[in-house]
């Protein structure tokens, strides 16, 4: 059976990994390629790089960074942030990205999903959904959870799948950053309602949370940032522990 995946996520601004990074001698701002290499040596199954540059210059730097990542890293990696057209996606594919992740651009223009998938295949398109519960309804949001949309999580995920998405990356904005665990029941319903893989993101504070979302939550992969960056949970320790709990992961 296909193994459950562990995916560190790196936020990149102007070519550098940002968010306080503090492991193995890397400083507050880390080198994106070196961190990726270290994670891949530690047993990460994939990497996600999100470009949070707001400037045109920053975006250009990101494309050349993707080229460097692709020449060094020997596991798959996804890139996201600021992709709003087929040509943006094409530039990143040409630079060597294995997948792209689209979020608010897909909500603004759902046809973009099918456009990219028909050119480069569904496996290339990850649709990221940031949702929170508003009046009892899981609502997709943009702008880091601040702006609600008229999209409901389950309907939107289903539509994204039908339009050609190869994976759904769902972050609960109610749990992101809390380190209190994932909403496993919501993940389980989402996974049951889709035929494509689901990546869980946001909320992990300990190994038990990750184990839960991969079992009770039925998620195919778990993505996290700070618990890996701060080395709170080293990936080899996490994976050994998951194996000990009977979860199929790659060692």
């Amino acid at each position: 059976m296909v193994a459950k995946r562990i995916i560190p996520c790196l936020d990149v601004k102007d070519g550098q990994v940002v968010k306080g990074i503090n492991f193995l001698g890397l400083k507050e701002v880390g080198d994106a390629v070196e961190m990726g290499r270290k994670y891949s040596e530690d047993g990460a199954d994939e990497l996600v790089y999100l470009d949070i540059s707001a400037t045109h210059e920053g975006r250009r730097t990101f494309v050349s960074l993707v080229e460097r990542i692709s020449s060094v890293i020997n596991i798959p990696f996804t890139v996201g942030g600021g992709i709003s057209s087929l040509s943006d996606a094409a530039r990143l594919l040409d630079a060597g990205a294995d997948k792209i992740s689209i979020n608010s651009a897909a909500i603004a223009n759902p046809e973009l999903i099918g456009e990219i998938a028909s050119h480069y295949g569904s496996q290339f398109v990850v649709v990221a959904i940031d949702a929170k519960k508003l009046d009892g309804r899981w609502t997709a949001t943009t702008h880091g959870g601040r702006v609600p949309t008229d999209r409901e999580l389950f309907e939107w995920a289903r539509e994204a799948q039908e339009r050609g998405a190869g994976e759904i990356l769902f972050t609960s904005m109610d749990h992101d950053g809390t380190k209190a665990g994932y909403p496993c029941d919501v993940y389980a319903s989402l996974c049951d309602s889709l035929s494509i893989p689901v990546i869980a993101s946001g909320g992990a504070g300990n190994i038990g949370h990750i184990a839960d979302v991969l079992t009770l939550g039925k998620a195919d992969a778990a993505l996290a940032a700070s618990i890996f960056h701060y080395n709170e949970i080293p990936i080899p320790v996490l994976k050994q522990e998951l194996v000990g709990r009977g979860i199929n992961v790659r060692l």
Binding site: M1, G166, I196, P197, D220
Partner: peptide, 15 residues
């Protein structure tokens, strides 16, 4: 054929 235990695409690490 997609099923509960086999999602499609088959994506990820397998033995």
């Amino acid at each position: 054929q997609p099923s509960a235990e086999a999602k499609v695409p088959h994506m990820g690490w397998n033995a």
